[in-house]
Design a protein around this nucleic acid. Structure first.
Lengths: 259, 259
DNA sequence: CTCGGTCTGTTGTCTGACCATAATTCCCCG
DNA sequence: CGGGGAATTATGGTCAGACAACAGACCGAG
């Protein structure tokens, strides 16, 4: 109750921490377009001078930006050293989702269902994509399907599977969807792989999975978005039910979408 | 769950940076369940002793965890001071998406379409939720709908609108979907608000939006997930076309879903 | 018992130093 | 004259110590 100096009115202008101010400076330059992927930030010591803060402060800001996957930092000398705006996506979203699973009791089932929502829409859009786009990606996808028919171990199959789904998502050309889907997949990839490896009859499972993949691809090529969506949803959820259900206590929520 | 420190027989011997090691220590305790939302971390100086690193290193690790929205740090004395595992979600996902818009040329249209994909599924699930669940949330939703009918400014309407959509998403009870949707919405909220404010005939627009909201809610209450999905998709996309289309150069991608 | 100031422990910031690394420079030798 | 290796140097990574700003804990005066 004792009168705190400047706390009377609004709460936003109060002393921003120095390192946060540095972070904001960098973010502002990103939003303004001054910093683009591949751009180099000044050296830490230069930033100290420019912003009038100590090196510790600058470094804490760098750690914040690095944690967000915005920059990557390399040491040494030369033009390739220092902090640069990342050009390739970092797995920060997957990390974030994984941590939330641990922290807030998010279930594998919730993640899988979310993935289903995204993948449904994604293949539906793919089915409506321009034919030229389909033509361009078709060879890679069909090579992937061929690979899947070859005899292999679960841990060899999994990356091919992941790649296949990724290519489907790429057809629609929506980088946001793509990023979200990769984040989700990354968060569940460990347990997915375990699911693959724990399947009792892997050979027949592989055959079925590949068959389902082929059907999805054919539905997309035929332009039937509704069918592709339905197939991909069942593809994912069936796999979950067969191989992953014991990884978390299902509360019956799947009944909703399987009806 | 993705890449725990001790994963596999692989060589972790590549010099992990000290601050990253500290971050991994904390993450490991989160994954193991030793740290839960609301838990307090040791003080910085205690961590220095425990882990045998300097305080700068510990602080850089804290900044990383803070940037990810994992912890929040307050200074001063007492049990409420120091670093604690966050109990409420941080807007880090929105921040991340916003930065990606600026960095990688993601378009508003891509974000809106992604949001549509999530919201479609979300209301579809809501329509299949247990009646008791609907009953529980119904008063709040209907109060929200009543609020929307009252004359108000766009900036007064917007939070009610956001709340309405949030409540719909809550019905399905999937926190992952919820988090993703909030992240998406946060990333576009600025431009959404501008869209509201730029509408030429706000009164009639408000009436139409509220009517659409009511229809969506009625479809959910009727258990018609397909209809709810279609309505919410058109609701969002129509708004985009009317109020936001000039915010980014549409490449015609909307034709796909509007056919 | 209540109010006020003071104490104490915490994070926030600064300074200066040294280490580790990698590009650059330069000199010696072939 | 050219090439290779050693020294130089610029950069991030880590450490130690200090002080400031802050907020709860404590205690004494009324």
């Amino acid at each position: 109750m004792t009168s705190r100096p400047e706390s009377g009115g609004f709460a936003r202008l109060e002393t921003t921490k120095s390192y946060q101010a540095v972070v904001n400076q960098v973010k502002a330059k990103i939003y303004s377009g001054e910093l683009r992927p591949g751009s180099s930030l000044p050296t830490e010591r230069t930033l100290c001078d420019e912003l009038g803060v100590s090196r510790s402060t600058v470094r804490e800001a760098m750690r914040s930006l690095e944690a967000l996957g915005i920059i990557e930092v390399t040491r040494g000398k030369g033009p390739a050293s220092g902090a640069r705006i990342r050009t390739v996506a970092s797995p920060v979203l997957s990390e974030l989702l994984s941590l939330n699973i641990a922290l807030h009791g998010w279930t594998l089932s919730d993640l899988i269902l979310s993935r289903t929502a995204l993948e449904r829409q994604s293949v539906a859009w793919a089915a409506g994509a321009a034919p030229s786009r389909l033509l361009a990606i078709a060879p890679a996808i069909e090579e992937s399907l061929t690979l899947m028919t070859e005899e292999c171990t679960p841990s060899e199959y999994y990356p091919v599977d992941a790649d296949f789904h990724l290519m489907l998502a790429n057809i629609s050309g929506n980088p946001v969807m793509n990023s979200l889907m990769q984040g989700l997949r990354g968060a569940i990839s460990d347990v997915m792989l375990k699911g693959f490896e724990s399947m009792p009859d892997w050979r027949s499972a592989q055959e079925r999975l590949t068959c389902e993949h082929t059907q999805i691809w054919e539905a997309i090529r035929a332009g039937d978005g509704g069918e592709a969506a339905r197939l991909v949803e069942r593809h994912i959820i069936d796999f979950y039910r067969e191989a992953l259900a014991d990884f978390d206590a299902s509360d019956g929520s799947f009944q909703r979408v399987l009806d």
